[in-house]
Structure formats: C-alpha cells, structure tokens
Design a protein around this nucleic acid. Structure first.
Length: 301
DNA sequence: AGCACA
C-alpha cells in the first residue's frame, strides 16, 4: 500500500481530536509529503488512467514554505478544467488527499472502506448518511459528516473545523493527465542564473533541482533563450509549483518582460534521482549556483 | 509557442 496513508493518523473524524486540526496535522502531512517525494512520477499518471484515487495538490504540504499559496488555491478552485468530470461527480477528492499526503484518507476517517468513492466532490452518498444527492452537495459542500464536527459552509465538510481554506481545498483538485514531476519553464530572462532560477522553485515542497538550458531563439536574431527544467519529487509537487508560479514576473515593475510560463515537461525526469553531484561534473556551466554547490570547489569557505 | 539532460 502506499505510504501516504499513514499520514493522517492525526486526523480523527470520529474522535475529539478534531480540535487539533489547526495544529499538528498539517505538519504531519507536510512531512509525509516529503517522504512521498521518493515516489516515482509514473505512479500518479498511472493512477489517473486507472481511475484510482488521484492526488490532490496537497495544500497542506506547502503550509510550511511561506509561499503565496492562498492565491494558488483560489485559482485552483476556479480551475474546473483541471478536474475531470468524474472527480466533480464524486470521483474521490478526499481520497486523493489521503493518498496525496495532503489530508484525509478514507481509512483515517474511521469511516470504513465504503467511504472511498463517495467522497469525491463532496459526494457522500455511499456513506449511507442520507445525503440527498450530489448536486446539493456540490452546492453546499456540507454533508452529514459535518454535523457535530464543526464543518463550515463552503468547505468539503470532512475537514470539519479546519480553519484554513486551503486545507479544505487540498483535495479538490486533480492532477492534469499530463502532469509529471518535471516542469518546463519558459520565459526566463536571458541572464538568469541557475541559482536565480532555483530560488524561485526551492520554496516548494518536493523541489529537487533546476536544469537550465541555453538555446538559440527561433528567430535567429542572435537571441538566446533560457529554458528551464525543474525537477520535483512527484507530479503533485510539480503541479503545485506550476500553479503558483504561472505568470510569475521576474521584474514586477516591468510589465512587458519575463513572465514565466510553466508546463509539465514533455519528457519528464532526469535519469535517476536528482542529486546535487549529478550536476557538478562536466555539464557545469560555471554559474553561481553550480559553483556554490561545489562545496569547497570555488575557493569558498 | 518555445522542451534538455542522460
């Protein structure tokens, strides 16, 4: 079984532990998210195809990073295009959280195995809790499970009294079919260093490394273009960063230039796990970032 | 729109 699931043991829907929401569990989830980082990318994609529970963005995992994620999740909420119909109709959103390291897993809820499929999109039908129908659920996002659990309107209900909106949203989204652990980033300034690029992505959970590529621009005006491949622990991590940084402006004051464009890399992943020393060798372009990672090599320290 | 490294 997938290691994630143990994450949310701190989450108890059947007990008095509900009050702990604001505190520990997010951290627990964050830790688990990191642990999950070793998971190969293929998995999430395969899950998608299998119709198995898919990973949400795992907002919780990112809580400790200090990035403007509230905005991110706002955006995600509106991004229905990323969610397939099944998910919207009850495909297992909350389960995704459980699997995804972001939040609730069916088993953690103490609600039994039958809970799984019904949780998606707020669909609580299978629980036999008397939910009228999913449309109502979609509208109100308040189900019987909320009763006595401090659920709040607008949330997914199962999160009960979780104070943070993004926590509630953690399981709402589904990875796009093309999601991978590698982001392709375009729109970097020509003089962007690897260090600079890495600074942008490092705050995100699961960040592994940045690979800069200098290419000749299509218009051979002598122009160079800097491409960037960013490796993450898994597709969910990558997707989170993608969402957060899409449209990121290098120069806030210059409205014209350097708006980041992020997509999932067409051919994801480096060969083997991304390690620092993988890039200390001949490919080193001698920029700050690489020199720095040399550890003693650059005459430092 | 533009996708490299092994």
């Amino acid at each position: 079984m997938y290691p994630f699931i143990s994450t949310n043991q701190q989450l108890r829907l059947d007990g008095p532990a509900m009050g702990d929401y604001g505190g520990n569990w997010r951290y627990g989830a964050a830790t688990e998210g990191r642990r999950a980082g070793s998971t190969p990318t293929k998995r999430s994609r395969r899950d998608y195809e299998d119709g198995l529970p898919r990973a949400g963005y795992g907002a919780a995992r990112d809580r400790d990073v200090g990035y403007p994620r509230d905005r991110v999740y706002e955006e995600q909420l509106g991004r229905a295009g990323w969610r397939d119909g099944d998910a919207l109709g009850g495909g297992g959103d909350l389960i995704q959280m459980g699997y995804g390291g972001g939040g609730l897993g069916a088993n953690d809820l103490g609600l039994g195995p039958g809970l799984g499929p019904g949780l998606g999109g707020g669909g609580l039908g299978p629980l036999g809790l008397g939910m009228p129908d999913e449309n109502q659920l979609m509208g109100a996002r308040m189900g019987p499970l909320d009763v006595g659990m401090g659920g709040r309107p607008g949330g997914l209900g199962l999160n009960g009294g979780a104070p943070e909106a993004d926590v509630l949203r953690a399981g709402l989204d589904v990875l796009p079919p093309d999601a991978s652990s590698t982001l392709f980033v375009d729109g970097l300034p020509q003089d962007c260093s690897r260090r600079e690029a890495a600074h942008i992505f490092r705050p995100f959970i699961g960040f592994k490394e940045v690979r800069l590529v200098h290419k000749d621009a299509k218009r051979a005006d002598g122009g160079k273009v800097v491409l960037c491949f960013v490796e993450f622990a898994d597709a969910r991590c990558a997707a989170t960063a993608l969402e957060a940084l899409q449209g990121y402006k290098f120069d806030e004051t210059d409205h014209e230039s350097y708006v980041l464009r992020l997509t999932f890399a067409r051919h994801p992943g480096p060969r083997g796990p991304a390690r620092d020393d993988l890039y200390r060798g001949g490919r080193d372009r001698g920029d700050d970032y690489n020199n720095r990672s040399r550890g003693g090599g650059g005459g430092r320290r």
